[in-house]
Amino acid sequence: MLITSLLPLLSRYSLGFDLVAGPDDTVTLTVIPRKAAGAKQAPEASEVRPISITAAAGEIDAELAKGEEGALGQLIVARKSLSDQLAEQRAAAEAAKTAAASKAKPAAAPAKAATPAPAAQPAPAAAPTPVPAKPGEPASLW
């Protein structure tokens, strides 16, 4: 049941396992997702966070026997869904980046080729000199 429960993760990641015996006949099973061999994109830190279960060996077996209905199965399905969403967002961001770059190239090329010569600007008029303030009144900027 363990491998069947982990198939959704195996389709996207390489998995490592750690099995540790604890006190009172408990066992800790840790599943460690890693970047799959040949994967183009490195997974996000949240995608490769280890999944750890600590319980009696029989309880872990019973939970794994539930498949997708068990806690591990539901967690794996949720992670796969989030991973799919991340992949879609990456693809959309890459497409938007490519579209923006392709729009910027044609607009930038004609601007360089057809730069108009600056027109002669008339000299600005001299600014009026401020009127001195009368005694007892504040100075005016107008």
Rank of each mutant, 00 (worst) to 15 (best):
K40A: 14
A133W: 00
P116L: 14
A45R: 13
A120W: 15
P128I: 05
L15I: 04
A117T: 15
E59N: 10
A139Y: 02
A87E: 12
T26I: 02
A65P: 00
P128M: 06
G70E: 01
A62R: 09
L19R: 09
P124E: 03
P110Y: 05
P130N: 10
A117P: 11
A45F: 04
E68P: 00
E69S: 08
G38C: 02
A92T: 08
E88L: 11
E59K: 09
A114Q: 14
G22D: 11
T28K: 06
R12F: 10
Q89V: 07
D25L: 12
V131C: 02
D24V: 08
K134D: 02
A36M: 10
G16V: 02
S52A: 15
A117Q: 15
K134L: 03
I76F: 01
R90V: 02
K103I: 07
P110A: 10
A62W: 00
I53E: 07
D84A: 10
A123S: 14
A91F: 05
L29R: 05
L29G: 03
A21S: 12
P43L: 07
T98R: 14
A127I: 06
L2G: 13
D61M: 00
L72K: 02
A127G: 08
V20P: 01
P106N: 05
T28S: 07
V77Q: 09
A99C: 03
L10Y: 04
A111P: 04
I53T: 12
E94H: 10
A36D: 04
G16F: 00
A133T: 02
I3D: 15
T115H: 12
A91M: 08
A119W: 12
R79E: 04
V77S: 11
A109F: 06
K66W: 00
L7G: 06
A78E: 13
P43A: 08
T28F: 01
A120Y: 15
P116I: 13
I53H: 06
V131F: 02
G22S: 07
K105W: 05
D84S: 08
A92S: 10
V77C: 02
A87M: 09
V31C: 04
E88A: 13
I32D: 01
P50T: 10
T129W: 03
A21Y: 07
R90E: 05
S140C: 01
Y13S: 11
K134S: 03
T98M: 07
P50H: 10
D24L: 11
P124I: 03
T98S: 10
S11F: 14
Q74H: 06
A92P: 01
Q89E: 13
S102G: 04
A62N: 06
A108T: 11
F17Y: 13
D25T: 10
T115R: 15
T26M: 06
A93N: 09
